[in-house]
Structures are given as C-alpha cells and as structure tokens.
Design a binder for these strands. Structure first.
Lengths: 142, 142
DNA sequence: GGATGGCGGTTCGAATTTGAACAACCCCCT
DNA sequence: AGGGGGTTGTTCAAATTCGAACCGCCATCC
C-alpha cells in the first residue's frame, strides 16, 4: 500500500507543480499544452476531435471548450472534414507551433528536475514498464 | 521520457477510474473520500482545516467548499478551537465513519485490481521508493 | 499597553470540468 | 429506397476548482 500512497501523492503533486510552472512560464494550462503536443506530433498537424479526446483525459465537452479557447487565442483552427460532414479537425496554426516551441524547453526541464533526476535508472525503467501496463489495461477496459 | 509519458497517462487514467468507481459505488467524490480517510486516521478523529489542506492537494478555498458540502451531508462537523478563536476543527461524525467503512472495501479492491495486481513486486517497490521521494521533494520545496 | 506583521478560514468572482441531452449524420441491412 | 443503430461534435446547467481579496485574531516587538 506504500506504493499506492506514493503514487497518489506524486500524481497530485507533480501535476500541480507542472501546471503551475507551465502557467507561469508560458500562460498555457496543462490541457492546452497537451493538445499542442499531440497536434504537433500528428501528420499534417491535425487531428479529429474524437482522437484528441481519446488521447487526453477529459470529456468530449471539455475538449470542445478548450479548443474553443485556443481558437480564440489563435493557437489552433477548426477545419471541417471533407468526407464526413459531422467531423471536425483541429489544426495547429503557425502561432500555435511557435507557442509550443517557446513553452517546451522550460516544461521539459521542469519535468526532468521534478521527476527524472530524482529517480534511479532502474526506478525509471520500472515505472515506465509498470505504469505503461497499468495505462494500457485501463484504456482497453474502461 | 517513456517513464514520463507512462506516469502522466497512468496518473490521469487511474484517478479517473477510481473517481468513477467511488462515485458509483458510494456516492463520494475522491476528495471527499480522502478527507474521511484522513480524519479517521487522526487522533480523536479531528483535524485543523489547515492540516487537512496541507495533506491534500486542493487550495484552502477548495477545502472550505468540500467540508461545507460534507457538513450538509452530515459526514463531518465543524468545531471551533478552544485555544485559538480563529481555528476550526473538522470532526468525523458517526455517519461519516459509517460511510467510510461502507465505501472502503470496494475502493481498496478497485485500487488493487487497477494498480497493485498489475505490477510486479519489484515494480511496486520501485514505485513506492521513487515516487515517495519525488513527493517528499516537491513538498518541502513547493 | 499598543501598533504591526503574519496566520487561519471564509467569501467572492471567474474559469474549468463534467454528464446528459441534443441535432445532424454515416453505415448497414433489408 | 428507407429505416434503425451508433457516431460526432456541440450546447446546456450544475458542480467543482482556483486565486485574490478579505476579516478577525494571535504574537511579538517597541
């Protein structure tokens, strides 16, 4: 049960810490940063709303809200899908890419400082394998 | 970075999964459950608001909100501190204890099923040690 | 004593999140 | 053709969260 308590506390504290760091550093919330990262990694820098929502944590309506905010801020753009009238792509704009590239280094180093550097290589390996498996199971089951 | 992605995903998915399980099973939110657990573990089943807020994740105002909700539901009670007029204790009520004892088994087994049983003993050890250390550092530094 | 700085908790407004309901649509089957 | 069943994204109200401002009070220093 020590692992459970540790996981719970670390999960909350790390998320909180990085939210803060990200907001102070670049004015992005963590969800918004995640959206930018995923779009930047996607082919053509665009993804269907549903794909974004699946990869992320929040509900569909939460995603709609965030994308609307980011569209107002000029970081992404909506584009309707030609083959399916219902479908909507979120596309990364030039400004969005720039914003991400500006925010990423600070965020990455914060992650490194808070998490990576604290752990031994063996612990990192165990966490990557173990928690990866945990995620996979919850995903396919949930 | 694999560890980072795994941690991030697991953190979100596990929290979400357990929130859900807890709400379906006993009508408690995760924050509320945590409050009950801490009070039940405290001497005399009571804690100062600030102590609760420190142990938990949310802000002071968030705690005020939750305790108010739980007081309406009869799970806790406020008691002013005799030696410091400003201070407020949150006290676990009999109903609160009963509610916790009713919710705990299901929650514990959900935790076990989602997390503990998926990991090897070595992984559990690494997570307990590593993430414990991560938490400790963030706490004393934050 | 009496100011002064800081703490403990609440209140307030704004931002975010959620689940359920909704409207429009695709796919498959007959 | 045409009708279910499931999907897609949005809208809505309600719940929760946060940060900043605030009030009342302790403690300490002059």
């Amino acid at each position: 049960m020590r692992a459970w308590r540790g996981f719970l506390a670390a999960s909350a504290l790390v998320n909180r810490h990085l939210d803060q760091q990200l907001k102070d550093d670049s004015g992005l919330s963590h969800p918004q940063y995640e959206i930018l990262v995923r779009l930047a990694a996607a082919p053509r820098n665009e993804l269907r709303m549903t794909e974004l929502a699946n990869g992320l944590i929040n509900s569909k309506s939460g995603l709609t809200y965030q994308v609307t905010q980011m569209e107002k801020a000029g970081l992404v753009q909506r584009r309707s899908c030609p083959s399916d009238v219902r479908g909507v792509f979120a596309v990364l704009t030039e400004a969005g890419r720039a914003r991400l590239e500006e925010a990423a280094p600070g965020h990455v180093s914060a992650v490194r400082e808070a998490l990576i550097d604290v752990l031994t290589p063996a612990q990192l390996e165990a966490i990557a394998d173990g928690l990866g498996e945990v995620s996979r199971r919850l995903r396919e089951q949930g």
